[in-house]
Structures are given as structure tokens and as C-alpha cells.
């Protein structure tokens, strides 16, 4: 029980402004250990901002974030979180393996070498092991970034558009592999199919406020018979709050 609460994630009245504009306005939600949520919303909804706030890279203008009961900027929160930003760019002057080993060393994980070997296999990166990141294709870079996000076996995974740039076979592989991990997941996306493949629940954001929250099945039930889920989502996102 106590172990479970360790990895709950709670957000209360979270607001964040950039200059005079609100990117997020009084957002509250709670995600329990092991639950998988999609942050769904149109461009500029505040999805990426939410994830950056959760990782502690951005500070809230007001409101509170608790990762396993503590502030995101604490060491404990850092060790249980793994983060993949949108357009992730690893260290350009390091090779694929060097990136993994460097971050492994910074995170003081045990068996840096073995973990790196395992991740290179896991994401089919072996042939690029010695390539400098600057030389990689965008999709390969994305795979490396995914590997870097999970190198320390985080309990909570924050993924911003994780399937961007990946070709369809790789998408399938990554989906299967992400689903095989027993972790709490928050995936930011504006693509409903990505949300439904990776998660069970949806937090729908638009213009910095939560429009709807619930399971994907409940979302489907909101529509008329045979109505594609995309069209339900589109209707909800554009309707007045």
C-alpha cells in the first residue's frame, strides 16, 4: 500500500502563465500508481507545458504538484520519473552508446554497461551504437530518446508525442514495448489512436483547462452508435466549455 502511494501523481489547481497568457489554468487531476493516461488536446492546449511542469523543468505560477508525495524538484521525484520531451534532442557530440552511458552514470544506475546493451537491443539501436547523434535520422534519434527516458527504470513515464517520427513497424514495436512496462504513464498527444493504443484513460485539455476526464470506453459511449471516436473527440474539443 505504502509502496503504491509512493508513485501516485497529484496535481492541484495548477496554473502556468507565459507573459500574460495562461498556458494552464487551475488544472487538477490525480493519477494512481500503474494507471495510464493520455493528455489529449489540440495544438497549444497546454499538454507539453503540463509535462514540463511535472518534471520540474518549469515552475508553476500557482498550484501544487506532488510526485509520490514530494515536490518534482526533489531527488526522489527525479529518480522515479522518466521524461521524453517533444522533439527530443540528446547530446549531439556524443554517440548513441555514449549518450546512454553518460546519463546512466549521472543517474548512478547499477550496471551501466549491461543496461545500455539491453536498451540498444530493446530499441534495435545496435548498428548505430557508435554513430554521433547529429548524424542519426529523426526516427532513430527518437528511439534513442525513448531509451534515455527509461534507462533508470522509472516508475512514472512522461512521454510527449512518443511516436513522432517513427515509421509504422517501429511504432508497433514501441507500443508493444511500452505496454509491457509496468509503470504509470502519461502520454501527451493530439492523436486519438495513439492515446487508445497506449492508455486506458483520457484527460482532455483545451486552451489550458480540462474539458473532460475519464476512461476511453466512457468516451466512446458518449457518441452516437458507429460514430468514430475521433469525431467525438473533435466535437468535445471545439465545443464551448
Amino acid at each position: 500500500m505504502a509502496e503504491q502511494e509512493l508513485c501516485d501523481l497529484e496535481v492541484r489547481d495548477l496554473s502556468r502563465t507565459f507573459g500574460n497568457t495562461y498556458a494552464l489554468k487551475k488544472v487538477s487531476f490525480k493519477i494512481l500508481q500503474g494507471e495510464k493516461f493520455a493528455l489529449l488536446g489540440p495544438n497549444g492546449a497546454g499538454k507539453s507545458t503540463t509535462l514540463k511542469l511535472l518534471t520540474g523543468l518549469l515552475k508553476p505560477t500557482s498550484g501544487e504538484i506532488k510526485i509520490g508525495g514530494v515536490d518534482p524538484s526533489t531527488k526522489k521525484a527525479r529518480t522515479i520519473m522518466g521524461y521524453l520531451p517533444e522533439d527530443a534532442s540528446p547530446y549531439q557530440m556524443l554517440s548513441v552508446r555514449e549518450n546512454l552511458e553518460y546519463i546512466g552514470a549521472l543517474r548512478e544506475i547499477e550496471n551501466v554497461k549491461e543496461t545500455t546493451d539491453h536498451l540498444l537491443d530493446f530499441f534495435d539501436l545496435n548498428e548505430y551504437e557508435r554513430s554521433k547523434v547529429g548524424k542519426l535520422s529523426r526516427g532513430t534519434t527518437q528511439k534513442l530518446a525513448l531509451a534515455l527516458a527509461i534507462i533508470h527504470k522509472p516508475k512514472i513515464l512522461l512521454l510527449d508525442e512518443p511516436l513522432n517520427y517513427l515509421d509504422i513497424p517501429t511504432q508497433e514495436k514501441v507500443i508493444t514495448r511500452l505496454n509491457s512496462l509496468d509503470v504509470t504513464v502519461i502520454v501527451s498527444t493530439h492523436i486519438m489512436s495513439v492515446a487508445s493504443r497506449l492508455t486506458k484513460n483520457v484527460i482532455m485539455l483545451a486552451r489550458g483547462v480540462i474539458r473532460w476526464e475519464g476512461s476511453i470506453d466512457a468516451l466512446r459511449a458518449l457518441g452516437e452508435a458507429e460514430e468514430p471516436i475521433e469525431s467525438i473527440v473533435a466535437r468535445m474539443m471545439t465545443s464551448a466549455p
Partner: peptide, 12 residues
């Protein structure tokens, strides 16, 4: 050449 999303989430 730093990468905040990697180093700043790994260490304080």
C-alpha cells in the same frame, strides 16, 4: 551543447 531534459532531470 547541454541537454536540460537529460541532465537536469537526472541531477539537481
Amino acid at each position: 551543447n547541454e541537454r536540460a531534459w537529460l541532465s537536469f532531470t537526472a541531477l539537481d
